[in-house]
């Protein structure tokens, strides 16, 4: 589980932070409402999760709320891994 969260967190840092950005991101950091990831750019995160975990997340479930923290993203992944 922690591996999964770490994997997601690493992707978020790599994909969304500028090289000189020293913002600290934890599993609870608000990514979208906190202005780190804009809702338009989060599509690449969705694709990353689908490919990495071999799941399909319907657009209706890929809401800004569901993608707002690493914890909520990980919970979403778990839900579709079981489905």
């Amino acid at each position: 589980m922690d591996d999964q969260k770490k994997m997601i967190l690493d992707y978020v840092v790599r994909e969304y932070l500028e090289e000189d950005d020293d913002t600290e991101i934890t599993y609870d950091t608000e990514l979208i409402s906190g202005g780190i990831v804009d809702s338009f750019s989060m599509v690449s995160l969705k694709r990353f999760l689908e490919k990495k975990y071999n799941i399909s997340i319907p657009d209706a479930d890929a809401s800004p709320e569901a993608f707002d923290t690493v914890n909520s993203i990980s919970a979403l992944v778990d839900r579709f891994k079981k489905a």
Binding site: E18, V43, S44
Partner: peptide, 15 residues
């Protein structure tokens, strides 16, 4: 882009 059926992706500003 939202109105278009093509896949969309983004890159970091001027990176």
């Amino acid at each position: 882009m939202r109105l278009c059926k093509a896949m969309n992706d983004t890159y970091k500003h001027s990176d």
